[in-house]
Design a protein around this nucleic acid. Structure first.
Lengths: 169, 169
DNA sequence: AAAAATTACGTGACAAGTCATATAATTTTT
DNA sequence: AAAAATTATATGACTTGTCACGTAATTTTT
């Protein structure tokens, strides 16, 4: 029915607009779009996945690092790093050596080959950051980061879970 | 070696701080933290996954909808919705009926049981949104959303990919 | 010194997210 | 009317991300 499908398009548009103003969904959608862009750029420029790029960059800036170190820097789970490293080792981009001080740990280090893989993607990713720096003043970027700080403060506070209409002790 | 491990802790801290100010990584990390919170809340309050919650909420506010409609509202791939719906149907939360006007499409509708599943989670998720509304003024939220708009404008512009040191026609 | 607790990494399993492809249906072009 | 192009959904396969658990090693407690 014509009228019915007109209604549907309006309902979709209204709901989409509504959710675009819901900061929770909007932040998620924006971050996913950003990640998608990074994935495409890295793939095209250097055949790297996002996690590979992050590991190479972290080792370049702060290496050598343990798996837990890398996971902490990237705010991710150690298992994601743990799974990524063998492949990167196979590609010759990193070496992982047992830490003599603590045999549970590996210390991961960039190789010359890894430095080249990083260098293949670095100009593109720098341009991406430069584009952002051009679009926002330092003050606006500070505001943005501060708002994200405050948003995470809100996340850190517990949200009560109560069954509907029930008052519990 | 003591000195070596002190250095490592400092390098990790410095790198983490640096990446916290890189808007690309920061935005991603913040959005992932937000999603994690939502996942935990929904699981605990109502045994719902994020995608299930989103579908129920969209249908409640704007249903009935096609799979493509839901994907558009959620800014996700239709395949994620396509995979989620059969399970929701099995749980009796939605019905999916062929659209007579276009037999390629299903129109998905909330059932009373689905409305109850939504209701089980809704107070918690509203509280979550209210906590956010208390922490920011309307003007701050507008600023935040506007910065996200401008950030996505930047994403929408192409980033040139050039091989290192090469000038191409 | 021995036992208990904690930590580092590897792996199983699952959810979110995406790209590609196939099939069926609709729309557009010839 | 028929052919070509496009669209809607399903599914394969992959990446990102996370939780849980097991094993080995270290640290803390007794």
């Amino acid at each position: 029915m014509d009228v019915k499908s007109d209604n549907r398009a309006e309902r979709v548009a209204a709901r989409t607009a509504r959710q675009d103003k819901n900061l929770f969904s909007r932040l998620s959608a924006t971050a996913i779009a950003s990640r998608g862009q990074a994935q495409r750029l890295l793939k095209t420029a250097a055949g790297l996945s996002i996690t590979e790029w992050r590991v190479l960059w972290d080792l370049s800036e702060a290496g050598p690092l343990s798996i837990q170190d890398i996971a902490t820097i990237q705010r991710t789970d150690h298992s994601l790093i743990s799974r990524t490293l063998p492949k990167m080792s196979e590609k010759g981009w990193v070496t992982a050596i047992r830490n003599c001080d603590d045999k549970r740990q590996f210390l991961v280090e960039l190789t010359p080959s890894g430095a080249r893989a990083l260098a293949a993607a670095a100009p593109t990713m720098k341009r991406r950051r430069d584009n952002l720096a051009k679009a926002f003043t330092p003050r606006e970027l500070d505001t943005f980061l501060h708002l994200l700080d405050r948003f995470e403060d809100v996340l850190a506070r517990p949200v009560d879970i109560e069954p509907s209409l029930e008052e519990t002790a």
